[in-house]
């Protein structure tokens, strides 16, 4: 589904990604771990097509198609979803209105009519129940005055509504207490199937107890320095990132 070859990217003059290789297939869950500043969030943003990052070398292929020159919204239409680490506020635009617009814009891009209102309402009800989201929450302005946990839950709600092929969860666990973490993780797990894939970006092993990865990759200084199964996350937790850093040097 997603194939990244020797990806280099920089912001302004600073090179952040220095040759990433990664392949994610349908039905798989990948975890990308690494210390602060290793390039985890940059990788997520580059896959989503954020302007401020310049790809200097390498390629991102999504379902065999080169994403170079593909606008962020087109990537979204193709089925790439990014759950933001810091979701932005949009005052005056309700959670419902926002997701409705998002869904209908994606449908429009695929040459489909707007989703009928009753179908939309049913879907909203279904997904908000799944994530234990209160009715009142849906009419609040997007992310305005939301707690950290509410913001993340809202991201996963959008994920559930949009049903993308590839979901990238950027530090979704940060700011969540254990109950919220469980709800969010359960939500993600329910959405998993053989046709979609999840990339979990996290600093800690904690989330991976709930969303169990098939593969774990360790990012350090803009490169994947180690890959393995889910046990790698535990090993990392135990030994700390210094272990990887030392191994890399050695």
């Amino acid at each position: 589904m997603l194939k990244i070859n020797n990806l280099h990217a920089r912001v302004e003059e600073k090179e952040i990604l220095k040759g990433i290789n990664l392949e994610v297939n349908a039905g798989e869950v990948h975890a990308i771990m690494g210390p602060n500043g290793s390039g985890k969030s940059t990788l997520a943003s580059v896959i989503a097509g954020k302007e401020e990052f310049e790809v200097t070398r390498g390629k991102i292929l999504f379902e065999g198609e080169d994403l170079d020159d593909t606008a962020p919204e087109e990537r979204a239409h193709k089925g790439i979803f990014l759950s933001f680490q810091y979701p932005v506020e949009i005052p005056g635009v309700s959670v419902t209105n926002f997701i409705k617009t998002a869904i209908n814009e994606s449908r429009k891009a695929r040459g489909m009519e707007d989703m009928p209102a009753n179908q939309m309402l049913k879907k909203i009800r279904e997904k908000s129940e799944m994530l234990d989201i209160d009715r009142k929450f849906l009419s609040r302005s997007l992310n305005e005055g939301f707690s950290g946990g509410e913001k993340k839950r809202n991201e996963i709600f959008q994920l559930a509504m949009l049903e993308p092929k590839l979901a990238i969860l950027d530090e979704t666990d940060s700011g969540l207490d254990i109950d919220a973490l469980r709800i969010v993780a359960n939500g993600v797990n329910k959405l998993r199937n053989k046709d979609n894939a999840v990339v979990v970006i996290t600093h800690y092993q904690r989330l991976l107890e709930y969303i169990v990865p098939d593969f774990v990759h360790v990012l350090h200084d803009g490169k994947i320095v180690k890959s393995g199964g889910k046990e790698l996350a535990l090993e990392l937790e135990e030994k700390g990132y210094d272990w990887v850093k030392q191994e890399t040097v050695a």
Partner: peptide
Amino acid sequence: DQIFYCNQRGID
């Protein structure tokens, strides 16, 4: 950032 957030959700 607001624009990118919307873009990422498929909104041009």
